[in-house]
Amino acid sequence: MARRKKIYEGKAKILYEGPEPGTIVQYFKDDATAFNAQKKDVIDGKGVLNNRLSEYFMTGLNQIGVPTHFIRRLNMREQLVRACEIIPLEVVVRNYAAGSLSKRLGIEEGQQLPRPIVEYYFKDDKLGDPMVTEEHIAAFGWASQQDMDDILSLALRVNDFLSGLMLGVGIRLIDFKIEIGRIYDGDFQRLVVADEISPDSCRLWDISSGRKLDKDVFRRDLGNLTDAYSEVARRLGVMPNEPTQMTKPKLIN
């Protein structure tokens, strides 16, 4: 079998050339990083869980008409996605104060915001992904005004979908990050939700207890990260509801 060509390796995923033109194989690693990779570890089963959860979220978005790059899951760690040109922005939607917003504005973590707030960060690890405004985005040509209108619409639709989904299983969606890609069909361009949606890219708190079920467990040394992600997967029906202790996540095929 021919060796696959690696296109890119990031902190949590590896991208390989896909089997067909215009496709990419996205491989989910077990690596966990925080504070711009200053804190690192390998968490058994994390990549498997993120692959399955991202599949679940992306499939749901596709079904309600929110376009994504996701095509299908290939195996426990890999999924097939459409190749797209990633806009160099991280799009963050905040429903409650937490993390950097609390630090910047002195707002207590967990306080509900008056309305969802959408923020943009320039994707550059060396610079620490600095926060930018639409003025910066327009001035440096990262996205057009029409792109920004579409990105805002996509971000808020994803927020509505994820918020309702999580509320139904007793989880509060505090905030999340998405990336947006451009797909070209001849001269026609469309924007899609790309990268991944998983507990790595969301803040998820249990509604009744406030327990964190996201990467803050790793950032703040709050317990076992796999247990937290497995709890999200179990509530959403991605994992079976079994009392048996498992050293690694057992997922439904």
Rank of each mutant, 00 (worst) to 15 (best):
K6E: 15
Y8I: 00
K11S: 14
A12N: 03
L15F: 10
E17D: 14
Q26P: 06
K29N: 09
N36L: 03
Q38R: 14
K39C: 00
K40C: 04
K40M: 06
K46M: 13
G47A: 02
N50Q: 08
N51E: 00
R52H: 15
L53D: 04
M58Q: 03
N62G: 06
N62M: 09
I64V: 12
G65I: 11
H69L: 10
H69W: 08
Q79W: 10
L80P: 05
V81F: 01
R82C: 00
C84W: 00
L89R: 04
E90L: 03
V92T: 07
R94T: 07
Y96N: 03
A98I: 00
S102A: 15
I107E: 08
L113P: 08
I117M: 15
V118F: 09
E119W: 08
Y120H: 01
L127Y: 05
P130C: 02
H136F: 05
A143G: 03
Q146G: 01
M148R: 12
D149I: 12
D149A: 15
D150R: 12
L154P: 04
L154F: 01
V158G: 01
N159L: 03
S163D: 12
G168W: 08
G170Y: 10
L173Y: 11
I174Y: 02
F176E: 04
K177N: 09
I180E: 02
G181T: 07
D185K: 14
G186P: 07
Q189R: 15
R190W: 05
V193L: 14
A194Q: 05
D195I: 05
D195N: 05
E196R: 00
E196N: 11
P199Y: 10
D206W: 03
S209P: 12
K215A: 10
F218T: 11
L222V: 12
N224G: 04
L225G: 03
E231D: 14
R235Q: 04
R235D: 00
R235W: 06
N241F: 09
E242M: 12
P243G: 14
T244H: 11
K248G: 06
K250C: 09
K250N: 07
